[in-house]
Design a binder for these strands. Structure first.
Lengths: 229, 229
DNA sequence: CCAAAAGTGTTGGTTTTACACCCATGG
DNA sequence: CCATGGGTGTAAAACCAACACTTTTGG
């Protein structure tokens, strides 16, 4: 084989970021979707996202879009994957770098001006989506499940203080299966990711559970074998 | 917080793909680097890569660049990460989608016309590199190690028929540690990824080892606990 | 018969899984 | 005293880590 000089048509596609914002609410894993107001895919639901500014880092663009929709700053954000199929956007080529964010409560929403509406959807019951957003979302869910098992990423879904049952609930909701309570506690405690505060949850009508917190808010990658339920 | 309509300067950066081509050779993990002939970073070594054509899928662009440099087709290619820091390229904004490729032997090289040279480098002893390519490479090595432990990706480094020692060598080289031979065999055989051919390797001056092959060339994701040495 | 690498099992320790009852509180 | 979820231990099975000698071939 001889090298053919490759020359044709280098193009300048548009660059966008799309964000999957995950939250746990009402015992469900949910994501935020925006109802499209502009003509392409008008009325369909889509991931929040937008253009990357000049001299703006990709992650900063994602953080900005996140803040514009939710008002939240300093949120866990991770680059997911880059979607660049030639005709994924009917208006012309758009390469989208997808990020996902984890938040610990539903914020008030500030739907961007080109959106007709914004709503939280249970991940297992999504409406029809615009573009290739189904694939982006399922990639994100897969990654989330995966990282739940070998990082301390779960911390981002919880308030500063939480009970072991609340923590277990998050695992069960995302992994989609029941975990034995004793085994769950044994394992989590053995990892030294969380520590007991000496406080108890107030105002419950049953035996008050202890409150725990994560030892660190840094992202920790566990030993591969560690967190498999 | 009120939604500020976000409008300023959406730009059209250039899009490129960069490829980390891994091979195992002389008991070392190596990658292909290109010596830059054009003025920016002239003389420095860099990853092979190039522009994405109009209507060309990102992975196809990576595959094309790979073929242009090596003549190889139908190679395992996986999207690694997207690097888009605003000033990573001094000529202007370039967003690079990095892919990595695994090949099972050094091919003849066809250095592209804008390259002064192309060479294989041991990953642990790289020269100074252009752009942010150190970070791209270390991200790739990390991913490779990780995937070695929970997929059958290792198959791509081996010829169709191979011995168990050759397979073990690949693991040891990439993971950078010795593995006990008996435990290695026990575990690998229990996974049913490989099967014995009834043949033996010819022309060796010692007890001829059995030849094995992978049951499938499809990418398989193992049970998380499975392949940890 | 020598050199070289191939091939092969056992044991002890650790981890995982499965499983059920009593406790502390508020009403 | 009832309802509610909180909190706790044990035993069997599976898995992992450490370890050394015999075999087959070519020269």
């Amino acid at each position: 084989m001889k090298t053919k000089k490759h020359n044709p048509k280098p193009e300048k596609p548009s660059i966008a970021v799309d964000i999957i914002i995950f939250v746990i609410n009402d015992n469900e894993l949910k994501i935020l979707l925006i109802k499209r107001g502009s003509k392409t895919f008008k009325g369909r639901w889509a991931l929040p996202g937008g253009r990357v500014d000049k001299d703006e880092a990709l992650k900063d663009a994602a953080a900005r879009e996140l803040e514009e929709e939710t008002g939240l700053k300093n949120i866990y954000l991770e680059q997911l994957y880059t979607f660049g199929a030639p005709f994924r956007d009917p208006r012309g080529r758009v390469i989208s770098i997808a990020y996902f964010a984890l938040i610990n409560q539903k914020p008030k929403l500030f739907p961007a001006t080109d959106a007709a509406d914004a709503q939280w959807f249970v991940v297992k019951k999504l409406p029809r989506l615009a573009f290739d957003h189904e694939i982006i979302i399922s990639t994100a869910v897969e990654r989330l499940r995966w990282k739940l098992e070998y990082t301390n990423i779960v911390a981002n879904f919880l308030p500063k203080y939480f009970t072991l049952s609340e923590l277990q609930d998050v695992y069960e909701i995302i992994l989609g299966k029941k975990i034995d309570k004793r085994n769950f506690r044994k394992k989590l405690l053995s990892l030294n990711l969380i520590q007991s505060t000496r406080k108890k949850k107030q105002g419950v009508t049953y035996r008050p559970p202890q409150l725990w917190r994560f030892v660190t808010s840094k992202h920790i990658i566990l030993n591969k074998r560690d967190l498999v339920f």
